[in-house]
Design a protein around this nucleic acid. Sequence first.
DNA 1: AATCAATTTTACTTTGTAGAATAGAAATGG
DNA 2: CCATTTCTATTCTACAAAGTAAAATTGATT
Lengths: 112, 112
Amino acid sequence: MGKTNILGSFEHLVLLALVHLGEESYGVTVRQELEQKSGKTISIGAVYATLDRLEGKNLISSRHSGADPARGGKPRRHFKVLPAGELALARSRELLEKMWHGIDLNKERPTG
Amino acid sequence: MGKTNILGSFEHLVLLALVHLGEESYGVTVRQELEQKSGKTISIGAVYATLDRLEGKNLISSRHSGADPARGGKPRRHFKVLPAGELALARSRELLEKMWHGIDLNKERPTG
DNA sequence: AATCAATTTTACTTTGTAGAATAGAAATGG
DNA sequence: CCATTTCTATTCTACAAAGTAAAATTGATT
């Protein structure tokens, strides 16, 4: 059998955020997306650390874009999901679906 | 917003294996289930370490049962998913579904 | 130089993982 | 009957990878 090589749970979420955001994805928007969907506070450091790791594994790539006019601040680092990243996502999803299959958590809850 | 508190990816899988196995769940069967569904090799140490951690967080409980007759080996440690564990699973699932929503990975694949 | 937006760094905790060691029960053989 | 071997299962050890928060830094703009 192959070696285990599953996406970390946060990596998974970050990757999904990137796919969702498309062109709009850079550190700050990724964090926003994550906070919105999860309702939890996400530290920006956690986001960048994970982005760096995903890039290190060649699941995503990044490039710097010149700063937009009419905006303070430094230029943004934009991210793109690579084919390997999409594959990893698809695999994670398949495995989770396989494992969830046939499971109903509300099986024996009190009725009255 | 609340603090992040997401299941680790392997914790998630182990919890799902336990739910799936019900009464039959102990270290060795959990590992089997995981290997079957994932097609990957899972070390037994990884399984127990994770079970211990889940128990430490009160997401599951364990009890020892006397050894079955007609079977070599030592008595088994059986595991049960607690309500908090089911809740954690339900939450993970919801979040993932929310994040997957609207995403189609096959968007722009070459057709010919 | 003050301000703003964004990224990087630092330091640490928690999870994930493999492999060896140990333990309990039953079977075997003298 | 007792020592030893064999099974099955669990625990221990040691380290790598992922997750996280908070502070520091950078680059552009005013």
